[in-house]
């Protein structure tokens, strides 16, 4: 798979990553190489093979009791926040 500049710009947008003009050709090249590399999987016959999402085959999800275990710690948790006002995380205006 050979990606175009447009492809990579599209992927970067979907992933919300700013890529500079200088970086773009580097990613076009390396992402194309990586995709070509992984395409060797296409040669494998996987008909009737179940996909494996998880190494713990046969394990199932544990269910927790419905109980409140947490207390209000927003001041501590917001210690890492870049911008907070009135206990809210502040972002540029969300337009709906």
């Amino acid at each position: 798979m050979s990606l175009s500049r447009r492809d990579v710009e599209g992927i970067a947008h979907l992933a919300r990553l700013e890529i500079t003009e200088g970086e773009l050709p580097v990613y076009v090249d390396s992402l194309s190489k990586i995709l070509s590399f992984v395409e060797q999987l296409n040669a494998v016959d996987t008909q009737a093979v179940e996909p494996m999402a998880h190494p713990l085959e046969g394990e199932t999800q544990r269910l927790r009791p419905d109980a409140v275990t947490e207390t209000d710690q927003h001041a501590k948790f917001q210690g890492n926040a870049p911008l907070v006002a009135q206990a809210l995380y502040v972002v540029p205006k969300v337009i709906e």
Binding site: A67, V68, T69, E70, D72, Q73, H74, F77, A87, L88
Partner: peptide, 18 residues
């Protein structure tokens, strides 16, 4: 998926855990 309370109308972010 967490042990935070679901009560309506609490102070902002007081019921949001890690």
């Amino acid at each position: 998926f967490s042990g935070s309370a679901t009560a309506y109308g609490a102070a902002p972010n007081s019921q949001a855990n890690l």
